[in-house]
Write a protein that binds this DNA or RNA. Structure first.
Lengths: 240, 240
DNA sequence: GAGCATTTGTCCGTATGTATT
DNA sequence: CAATACATACGGACAAATGCT
């Protein structure tokens, strides 16, 4: 495993030590690790970088390196829990901040999913989600304007657009389609996720329809950092 | 984007150049990059490592750094194409090598999925899959022995256990369940995938049943390298 | 707000090891 | 065997962000 590579050896030692520590705990600095194992700072640094690659730690310049824990987020058709609920059940503290609310023309792909003409008007909600104070996700949500002419400031208080749709539009939104992929974010998304390095992130695209009429109601793109959540997707048969 | 960081700047330059080159092309060595941009080899190396992190290149010690391309592998309930087919459609050359065939006792989780008693006997097939000669995946497949008493050497010739089940057992296997996750492989799997660094990989767990009777027929765990395939999972409604 | 120590981020130059060709 | 190329390592330096005084 760690054949001839001192830094990998050190990384393994640190990894087992980290396993017993709780999330958020600060680990030894690179200087301390270097001194402890009798190596240069470069080697110690390589070991910590290895741990970062394994998503075991999170590094903050000027502050230190901290133990990281991911929470499992299971997407399945049998149950579609909100991320808020999942985080709370895992003992974490979820928070959502609305970054922007505006009216825009629907981009082509989103318009197609919402079965609206391309360029037709919609409300766009941009939100960031946090888990235990750490940035986790960045989401865009669209609702066609013909469904909901006005979108007041109350959106800042609600957890998702779901409640707005239920209360104001009197519809019963259910998730109708969902696509999960893992790839590099564009510049805007990378900025929203504060991923300094261009690392791959999760992308969950989803569509909600009205349970009764089948009308496409809402569409969302959610990017989330893989060092925060461990995404698991379950598919049930039968296959066609 | 590349503010203050020379290596990131270099990485971006190289990334755009790479975009125009075909898969497998060898890029400049670290020495050449260092000379070209007037930086030390460490900085050049950091740039190439950045590209590796973006899955844009693949590095081989002693040989060089080569342009990498991923193929999209879409998992959905509407269509469940084999990886072989997907690769060929993308213009790649798929290959599968049987690494091991043996009888074993079913592990607890697999036994539960196959609806067999824990520890009951099964055939275990271990295979590696390649795309254009590069190692892509490592798979374990189980068939309960009560379904198929004998498993002859013919398995080396077939593409999957699917054909064996159809021809020998006279059943009609359809995928009944599937779970996709992304996490660190265990030591055995890491060795099978030749992932020197402990990097996360895809894990696809799946179960096949007989179309008619619903009997659980086959169970598989497939790990695959994220630098080879870009996995996309589609979920269709309705949600419960 | 200013100053300071700590910590990670980046970079230099050099050297040696190891796998491939 | 030799040349090439990546892997690891050393020690030093400065920059940038953080947290505390």
């Amino acid at each position: 495993m760690a054949k001839g590579s001192r830094y990998a050896e050190i990384a393994n030692v640190l990894a087992t030590e980290i396993a017993d520590q709780s999330a958020g705990t600060q680990i030894a600095s690179e200087h301390e690790i270097a001194a402890r194992f009798g190596v240069s700072r470069a080697a110690a640094r390589a070991a910590v970088q290895e741990l970062e690659g394994r998503l075991l730690v999170r590094r903050v310049r000027g502050a230190g390196t901290f133990v990281n824990r991911r929470i499992d987020y299971v997407l399945s058709q049998r149950k579609a829990p909100s991320l808020h609920q999942t985080v709370r059940e895992a003992g974490g503290e979820p928070r959502t901040v609305v970054r922007d609310v505006r009216r825009t023309a629907l981009p082509a792909d989103v318009a197609a999913r919402l079965e609206r003409p391309e360029g037709s008007e919609a409300h766009l909600l941009v939100r960031q989600s946090y888990i235990d104070g750490m940035l986790n996700g960045w989401a865009q949500e669209w609702i066609p304007s013909d469904l909901l002419p006005e979108l007041d400031a109350a959106v800042h208080a609600v957890e998702s657009l779901d409640s707005i749709l239920r209360q104001v539009c009197r519809v019963d939104p259910v998730r109708a389609w969902c696509r999960v992929s893992y790839s590099l974010p564009g510049p805007e998304v990378a900025a929203g996720l504060e991923t300094a390095h261009n690392r791959p992130v999760w992308l969950i695209e989803s569509l909600s329809r009205d349970r009764e009429t089948g009308t496409a109601l809402m569409c969302s793109n959610t990017w989330s950092r893989p060092d925060c959540t461990r995404l698991i997707v379950e598919l049930d048969g039968p296959w066609k």
